[in-house]
């Protein structure tokens, strides 16, 4: 039942978190952001990753896999990017985007924590 700001703050408290955003993938607009840096513009990341989420959803449709996306992991040389669509009521059409520093993050733990944050979000 966490409010949006609390959820974003919780996400930033995950070890190694660089930035987090809640994004509407019908428009690519952010509903809220926390963290980020000069190198990581979260508005650009949100708009770009909207295309990633849409592409994966289209692919599932083409493959006729009647399943949902739990999360998407993108591994960079120095970062992890985690994308997690919201399943809660009222959260349809939104996803959480979390960027982590690879050297400082525990991926398994981060994924678990993000799942908990996602299930607690209420819009």
């Amino acid at each position: 039942m966490a409010a949006l700001d609390t959820a974003l703050k919780d996400a930033m408290s995950i070890d190694g978190a660089i930035g987090v955003a809640l994004v509407d993938y019908s428009s690519g607009m952010t509903l809220g952001v926390a963290g980020g840096s000069q190198e990581l513009d979260l508005a650009v990341a949100a708009a770009g990753n909207t295309d990633v989420v849409r592409a994966k959803m289209r692919t599932l449709e083409m493959l006729k896999i009647a399943d949902g996306i739990e999360d998407i992991l993108i591994t960079l040389d120095t970062q992890y990017h985690l994308i997690r669509p919201l399943n809660a009521r009222g959260g349809k059409g939104l996803f959480l985007y979390l960027a982590l520093s690879k050297s400082r993050a525990n991926l398994g733990l981060a994924r678990h924590q993000l799942r908990q944050i996602e299930s607690a979000i209420e819009i």
Binding site: G28, M29, A43, A46, A47, R54
Partner: peptide, 10 residues
């Protein structure tokens, strides 16, 4: 209808 309007703005 499917426009990524945030991306378009950028």
């Amino acid at each position: 209808d499917g426009l990524n309007v945030a991306r378009l703005h950028i």
